[in-house]
Design a protein around this nucleic acid. Sequence first.
DNA 1: TTGAAAGCGCTAACAG
DNA 2: CTGTTAGCGCTTTCAA
Lengths: 354, 354
Amino acid sequence: MRATIKDIARLAGVSTQTVSNVVNDRPVVGEATRRKVLEACRALSYTPNASARGLVTGSRKVIGLVVPHIGNPAYGDLIATLARIAGAAGYSVVVGDTGWNPEPERTLLSSLIRQSVDGVILASCNDHGSLQMLRDAGVPTVLLYNYFDGCDADLFRIDNFGAFRMVTRHLIALGHRRIGFVRGLMSTVVRTREDGWRSAMTEAGLDVGEDLVSVSTFDQNGGHAAVTALLAQAERPTAVVCTSDIMACGAMDAAADLGLDVPRDLAVTGFDDIFVAAMRRVRLTSLRYDRARLAQQAFDRLLQIVGTPPGHFPGPRQSVALPCELVVRASCGSPAGQDTAATRIRTPKEVARP
Amino acid sequence: MRATIKDIARLAGVSTQTVSNVVNDRPVVGEATRRKVLEACRALSYTPNASARGLVTGSRKVIGLVVPHIGNPAYGDLIATLARIAGAAGYSVVVGDTGWNPEPERTLLSSLIRQSVDGVILASCNDHGSLQMLRDAGVPTVLLYNYFDGCDADLFRIDNFGAFRMVTRHLIALGHRRIGFVRGLMSTVVRTREDGWRSAMTEAGLDVGEDLVSVSTFDQNGGHAAVTALLAQAERPTAVVCTSDIMACGAMDAAADLGLDVPRDLAVTGFDDIFVAAMRRVRLTSLRYDRARLAQQAFDRLLQIVGTPPGHFPGPRQSVALPCELVVRASCGSPAGQDTAATRIRTPKEVARP
DNA sequence: TTGAAAGCGCTAACAG
DNA sequence: CTGTTAGCGCTTTCAA
């Protein structure tokens, strides 16, 4: 059996309280006693029981992080960053992968609630139900990336509209007239991105018919399927804007499978700027944002809420939309993208409404 | 404040024990009582306190998973799979990213120990110290992928030697004579892979001088740097075997930056068969294995140990080496890799010594 | 500066 | 089938 605080107290000849004080680095213990206790801890290889501590303090020092697809390096990087940040603050991170589906999300959340996590960073939330579950359970929550219409939670996201308007405008400036929009299943984020695409298209007087929008799953296979469908039309688009880099990877493959050259026959753009996009063989034009910063902001805010006693005011609700940078590479056919070095184009600076 | 079992008991007019029985689905409660209790739970949106339960039962229903690099899709997929498997068994997964460094690993492990996780799956262990920490703390542990010489823990790994001998043999059969080996920092796994490469080379009477081995970090940048160094030699290798796909991605970039064509001027192979390898633009020859299976086996064994009362025998130590499949694509210059469909070559079947 | 006592919310063992 | 009692290991009063 594992040693308890009592065992240490007995061995060191002090009370359990003193042991607790030493273990928690409370500066109220004499140096000699302190040394004795530490010695006893080492001898019995004592580890405090997290459940017992959590029971008293009311905090488990664990947060949940729910993402749609861990295998996507964009989310992988996010998890790594968040785990590091949280770790530095003494928190562990429990992860869950929803695969973009609502049912696994509910299952995951109820599991996190059952685990009594201190808070949740929800990066895969597309409807009210999930958020409501957390609220009912009284679990502090912040939303990351994904959200839904009329959601009134703290939110840390990308400027989706601006980003997709920017990339679409760029393609239009390059002379494209039929520009497809490739997206995953509908959500507020996806719709906002589509709005950005549509905004750029209509301001240029271009067609935004439904035949230019292709829907599929949010991974390579989805991108492949969506673009294959798009290219099966009589009047093919000459460019496609994809809602993620991994969809764009599938899109490039789809073009290749049809014997089309990217960018000559089809310009392709992505989103997230994962490492694959920068590969010389790929050279995918993408949209970049500061993932680490977004993660940091979301975590800071979560901690702020977690640290607020119930009934008190945890400060004003935060809603941040981080700007994107257009990283122009060869896949969009821009002259600027032909060099080895990518060209960057920035959006207006960060939008934060308190 | 959150409702407790007592609140429910009072509201439902039963004892706390009955509430506990209902909440834990113990089939010893009358239907009427059961219904009343459930009703009260809903009314007060009751969630059991995991710390309190954990304190009594001695289990937090959490396992730790420590990997070297979450941003690598190979590990991302692993995490997703493991999170799903563990979730189905009622366990949450706390993740940590070591970045291949020993110090973060120690920090992470001590954090997991402090959190009193039920067990740890350690996929980034390269020395005895880390394992010893967990042992001292009495935390059940299984090793995944990475291990060290003379390690006596349960181990679920790849047949590294066979895999790298196989891919090297393949390159030799294609006529290559100078074949470089690109690896991350030294570890037992890396050394075993190098042994596989060396075995194939020496059996063919080929040079295995140190100038053919290039060392760097385990990511794209590392692959780029290592291959750039390799290609700076007077007598350039005509092929490089990389120890991961993301290193191989960097390797391909390095070749491109030097104006070399892959595979004409340099054949490149990777390991893990991540989605990038299959991209038409990339077509990276790689080594594939059943990640999901490895994850399942590791988790099953961990659960077996966790479920064994202290002092009892948790069954024989397991040591599994899963075989790899060579996935031949264009990057190695094999005629078989020129089609769109990849060719697969298998290694001898699974090696398991109990 | 240290010790004693109470109790966090729950489950296990028993008694009814 | 249900209620009572005890106690998990720790922190938090409060006294000494």
